[in-house]
Design a protein around this nucleic acid. Structure first.
Lengths: 205, 205
DNA sequence: TGACAATCGGAACATCGTTCCGTATCTGTA
DNA sequence: TACAGATACGGAACGATGTTCCGATTGTCA
């Protein structure tokens, strides 16, 4: 609480007070940039040149730096956007599936999110201020999302209600680190196991 | 065993067959470079520019690249040199202290070695071929050194003899990862605890 | 429609890793 | 000791990359 950065660092829409309306072209650039960066980072890794992202997005380099003052800010922006996408899917799944199915489907979706974040692991702890708020952003968004799914499944009597959402998020995250050759399959099995555990937890008091 | 590099990658003196004698100035450059790099990396981190190392060593950039074809080779060279220094100290301590004291003193010396390698952790797993042989070099040198100290202490009846040297090396390494604010002190306490454990292990069969 | 401000594009700059090559130095020999 | 060839040295130069700057362009609102 001493050296805490005072910059909000919210990469999206603050919407507080009356923010001057963003110009349409600016909004388009930001979207194209985030979309292009997501693909480029997935293909060439987070070390890919900024110019490559600019080219793929069909904008000039200057535009990149107008939207994201630093290369790290661009990376952080992609991270936040993917957090948002994954969190949004929790609601979608909850509305289109039985509680326990929704929970299971989302946890597997979450492992995919984690899988794309391998390259970021070292960057997160690099001390770069652009990444400072990312762990909080991660938790503040994922924890309520998973909590909602868990509650619905618990209310339906499918699982027990004594699981800490954050513990589960961390557990799956750690599970995904050790993945070797058949990584994806291994992770899938282990997550299924966790879900089974939740079920038993519900039926056997 | 398929994609194993065939390059020896021994940064020091091969000495096999009859190697042409190295010129005196070349040897001086290599030493100055390793010494300078050690200090620069300790001060500015392993990301410090090669030019900074060259300047501190008092040589031109060309000379850096003549001795270390790649920036990563320079880092690896410093790493090996520090391994050598730490290993050499094991012998020194064994000759100047009672077995159990030597063991204790060296383990604490080893924690210092580990402490300076934080920045390398991610580089080690980066896939850079210059770092490929480092883990082996680490183990091949440290394991016998610690084994000798453990044996001497065991022969003197100070500790039990059923500790795997490599396990101990890893344990202390892992211990050092988690260090937070009072890191050094915390590590010291934990290592002392391990040593206590070794002692009890000897007196209470 | 017109004017103002926000945005854009990309040339230009600074920093890095790395390469090249003319020059300086060392070493073994006469 | 003096010489010649081999070896090493220094640093300019190159290509890549992050970042800055500014004139040209475009969107928005009256």
């Amino acid at each position: 609480m001493s050296d805490e950065t005072t910059i909000p660092a919210d990469g999206a829409k603050p919407a507080m007070t009356k923010e001057k309306r963003v110009r349409a072209d600016a909004q388009r650039s930001t979207d194209a940039l985030l979309e292009a960066a997501k693909k480029v980072f997935a293909t060439s890794g987070v070390d890919a040149p900024v110019r490559e992202v600019a080219e793929r997005a069909g904008v000039g380099i200057g535009t990149v730096y107008r939207n994201f003052p630093t290369r790290s800010d661009l990376i952080a922006g992609v991270f936040r956007r993917e957090v948002d996408a994954c969190v949004a899917e929790a609601t979608t799944l909850a509305n289109t599936h039985p509680p326990c199915d929704a929970l299971s489907l989302w946890l597997h979706r979450y492992t995919q999110f984690i899988a794309t974040k391998k390259g970021l692991a070292s960057a997160l702890h690099s001390g770069d201020p652009a990444f400072a708020t990312l762990p909080d952003y991660f938790r503040e968004n994922f924890e309520p999302a998973l909590a909602a799914l868990l509650n619905q499944a618990a209310d339906a009597g499918d699982i027990g209600g004594d699981v800490e959402p954050y513990d589960l998020l961390r557990a799956i995250g750690n599970l995904s680190v050790a993945s070797g050759a058949d990584g994806a399959a291994h992770i899938r099995r282990m997550v299924d196991l966790l879900i089974q555990g939740l079920r038993y937890n519900g039926s056997a008091p």
